[in-house]
Nucleic acid binder design. Structure first.
Length: 857
DNA sequence: GCGGATCAC
DNA sequence: TATGGTGATCCGC
């Protein structure tokens, strides 16, 4: 979102320093700059805020004075020396210039406002802003003509534009739309980097390579008249005139009047391909995109618009810095490319105001301005001076900027750990974490597995099975340490260069297994014989069967187990010295443990709590688990239940992706939800005839190949995606990043929530990831839950990894949100006003309102 | 190491 | 009536 720069510009406005980018065109109904500034000044003058702004300004002025004094003392000799030193660095940078990557920055246009306008047609032609009277997050382009911008207090905005409609933010909705967009982006770069709900970087280099060989069909899209069901592949036929007209009405809402979109559906047969590659005549209402980067980005934007009815702007460049500036250039609903050519880069940079660069803010602009530096060319010309006045990191950064250099990779980079001592320490930490989880779940295991990924991304797993079960940190570490030692020794005399480590405990046994044989929630979840709940012993041959080959008569959970076992076996078969079978923990164990835990909570020490019957959906107030099970039994035996009914359960996972920035904005199932889970002691389950549908073909959806090395929202994205595109992800482990605040202990997993309540027609909120699902299609929804559930199964295997500590990618990024290496805690100011700050964007993004209450409403 | 400043969203 | 909250990095002390 473009709020940051806007905000800074507003500060300038407030102080009447200068009006920078407030480029309203003094339209017929808008206001001119002068008027805007007058109103703002009037509203702000005399306030504490204004006073503080003045104080800050004074401070900056002082800094500038100091700098200018320093400058005055610089001798020409010093300057010459500096010049040669800086030139050396510049040469090195020039030599290492990498133009081989194609980086794309995608930015949704006036995102929040656009979503609100889309969903409420009454707002379409009116000036609106999203936020509150205290603070606005964004405004539509209509409102911007009055000077209403992001980061402006609503009450001032109202003075500028009395007819302004301020819409309270609805972050759940924005998140949902954002995931729709992300689904598309992931197809072009599975490792794309989301900056916020409306902004992301992609590296499409690989996609471009592959795309060159794609047949036209793979680049062909059908225009859709309506915006639902996300099957993006050509298939739905919409080629009649009536539908086409409907399409034209549906897409491209009149968000923007000043700059026409560079892509526009026109005529009957829409052919967007600019490269003249089509030789076959196109069907009406089909679109074929070419193979160039420009075409790829047009395709992305086209698909975003088709899917969400919202427009996006994009920038294409050889690095992130340039891509970001590019996306701003043709905003809204446009795109700009800098070709991967040095001259093209330099031409673009030449007159570029430094303020446009991400990382150069209001203060830096002013300081450099005092030195006569406004454009990137000037920044380059003054490089020697800058190296004498600024810190090394700063002038290096300036040099990067002035040469048009930036990050060329988005992949997560971690600093390696190659010291044995550190490796053992990390291993021990992991074992401790694992042991805590094991003990909370009351589980013990016999097989300890260490997973190692080296700097070349090669993964090795080494397992060892001991004669008696282990669960303590010491015992697990004793085994894991030896496994690690073997690997370290094997690498000797070279160090073992690791970027990821995981410790796993499997081969569970629990004395609780044989309890609760009754036909209850637990009984239903048990594999094999429902009477004993035991998993039938399988031969090695059995275990070599792929999930798809297993009997269709098996239960849903049977299949899940087979799938999991298969995948599990797959990772182990090459390197496990011990060929013992690896018993699988039952979901019911987890459930049961959780139930027991719940009943052991202090608030509920009498072993009684409120359960909701999954069959009749009635709350069973303050009864014991046994009584609750009896109730369910009675319900099940009653006339209302079909034979096909299956209990539904899941275990929530605290899957957190490896230190991607994504985590900041999208970690939905983190702290907040864990808290909710503690508060919500209800145990719910659901009678789910719909589940039968999943049961009949779980493997067809490709869900068993869930990539778990992603955060929860991505998992849910993948769920939908895998349903639609049969996109397969290799099974990998649930990964926890060091230093992440988001990793809740397993004991804080959520209690059971209803999967889907058909009876009460409640919102389709996934009970696992807590995300409201955009599609109202039950099959899709169930499929999604299935994936989340599957993830829960994987979690039961206790595959827990820790990515190694991260480091900044390169020296080009001085500020901003780089990969997290530690957590910074900032205390809240003005505690009394907390509740009023509903417009706080980051807060909402980081701690989304729990959707459970919506679900249970 | 800590806190303030800067920047970003 | 009223000008956000959070995280990251840099830098000076």
């Amino acid at each position: 979102m473009d709020s940051a720069k806007e905000k800074n510009d507003l500060c300038k406005d407030d102080l009447l320093l200068r009006v920078g980018l407030n480029d309203n065109k003094a339209g017929m109904e808008g206001l001119d700059k002068e008027k805007i500034n007058k109103i703002i000044l009037q509203a702000t003058k005399g306030s504490r805020f204004y006073g503080n702004e003045l104080r800050k300004e004074k401070q900056v002025n002082q800094r500038i004075e100091t700098m200018m004094r320093q400058k005055a003392h610089i001798t020409s000799q010093q300057l010459r020396n500096a010049q040669s030193q800086v030139n050396r660095v510049a040469m090195e940078l020039e030599q290492s210039r990498d133009l081989s990557n194609t980086i794309v920055h995608v930015d949704m246009d006036a995102f929040y406002a656009a979503v609100e306008m889309r969903d409420n047609p009454e707002l379409k032609d009116r000036p609106i802003a999203v936020g509150s009277m205290s603070m606005l997050s964004t405004s539509n382009y209509h409102a911007r003509r009055f000077g209403v911008r992001a980061a402006m207090p609503g009450f001032i905005a109202k003075r500028l534009c009395p007819h302004l409609i301020i819409v309270p933010p609805n972050f759940d909705k924005y998140r949902a739309v954002s995931s729709e967009v992300k689904e598309i982006l992931a197809e072009y770069d599975p490792d794309f980097m989301a900056v916020s709900l409306d902004e992301a970087y992609l590296n499409i280099t690989k996609h471009l390579q592959e795309r060159q060989t794609w047949p036209e069909d793979k680049r062909k899209y059908f225009l859709k008249t309506e915006n639902f069901l996300e099957n993006e592949k050509p298939g739905a036929d919409v080629n009649n005139q009536e539908q086409w007209s409907a399409l034209q009405r549906a897409v491209s809402p009149l968000l923007f009047e000043d700059s026409p979109p560079d892509w526009q559906p026109s005529g009957n047969s829409t052919q967007v391909n600019c490269e003249g590659q089509n030789n076959s005549p196109l069907l009406p209402n089909t679109v074929v995109f070419g193979t160039s980067a420009e075409e790829v980005v047009k395709e992305i934007r086209f698909r975003i618009e088709q899917k969400t009815t919202l427009t996006a702007s994009a920038g294409i460049a050889p690095n992130t810095m340039l891509a970001k500036i590019c996306s701003d250039k043709k905003k809204p609903n446009g795109q700009h490319q800098i070709l991967p050519d040095r001259q093209a880069v330099m031409d673009f940079i030449k007159d570029l105001p430094i303020r446009k660069v991400s990382g150069i803010g209001k203060v830096t602009e002013k300081m450099l301005g005092a030195l006569g530096i406004v454009t990137c060319t000037e920044l380059y010309q003054q490089r020697a001076l800058l190296s004498l006045l600024f810190s090394e990191t700063s002038w290096h950064y300036f040099l990067h900027v002035s040469l048009g250099l930036g990050s060329t990779h988005l992949t997560r980079t971690f600093s390696e750990i190659n010291k044995a001592e550190e490796q053992y320490r990390l291993c021990q930490e992991l074992c401790t974490e694992l042991a805590e989880d094991m003990q909370k779940e009351g589980l013990k295991g016999r097989t300890v597995t260490v997973k190692l990924k080296n700097v070349n991304f090669e993964v090795k797993t080494r397992a060892s099975t001991v004669s008696s079960v282990v669960s303590t940190a010491e015992a697990i570490f004793a085994v894991a340490r030896e496994l690690l030692r073997t690997e370290i020794d094997a690498a000797f005399p070279h160090p073992l260069r690791l970027r990821l480590m995981g410790v796993r405990l499997s081969g569970f046994s629990s004395e609780d297994d044989k309890k609760h044989h009754q036909r209850s929630i637990i009984g239903f979840l048990q594999a094999g014989d429902p009477n004993t709940g035991s998993v039938p012993e399988k031969t090695d041959k059995d275990r070599l069967l792929k999930p798809l080959e297993t009997s269709q008569k098996k239960s849903f959970f049977d299949k899940k187990r087979s799938e999991r076992k298969w995948t599990h076996e797959d990772t182990f078969k090459c390197d496990t010295s011990d060929k013992q079978s690896l018993p699988i923990s039952h979901p019911c164990q987890v459930l049961k443990k959780r139930m027991r835990e719940n009943s052991e909570t202090p608030e509920d020490s009498d072993d009684r709590q409120i359960f909701t019957c999954p069959v009749c959906f009635k709350k069973q107030g303050h009864i014991s688990l046994g009584a609750f099970n009896k109730h369910i039994d009675a319900c099940l035996d009653g006339p209302s239940t079909s034979e096909n009914s299956r209990m539904f359960s899941y275990s929530h996972t605290s899957c957190v992706e490896v230190g991607n920035r994504e985590q900041r904005s999208f970690s939905l199932c983190e702290n907040h939800n864990h808290e909710a889970s503690r508060e919500n002691t209800e145990i719910n389950s659901v009678d789910c005839d719909d589940l039968v549908e999943i049961t009949s073909h779980p493997s067809e959806t490709g869900l068993h190949n869930l990539n778990n090395e992603r955060n929860t929202e991505e998992c849910s994205d993948l769920a939908r995606k895998s349903l639609n595109t049969e996109h397969h992800h290799p099974l990998s482990a649930c990964t926890i990043s060091l230093g992440s605040q988001g990793v809740g202990p397993l004991s804080e997993q959520q209690p059971l929530q209803p999967h889907l309540n058909e009876i009460t027609k409640q919102a389709l909120v996934c009970p696992v990831c807590n995300l409201e699902q955009t599609s109202s299609d039950l099959t899709l929804f169930n499929g999604h839950v299935d994936v989340c559930l599957n993830k829960g199964f994987i979690q039961e295997l206790r595959k827990e990894e820790v990515s190694l500590a991260k480091q900044p990618k390169d020296g080009t990024k001085r500020t901003g949100n780089s990969d997290r290496t530690h957590k910074t805690v900032t205390k809240t100011k003005r505690p009394g006003l907390m509740a009023k700050n509903s417009a706080s964007k980051k807060m909402q993004e980081n701690h989304p309102r729990n959707t459970l209450d919506v679900f249970f409403k």
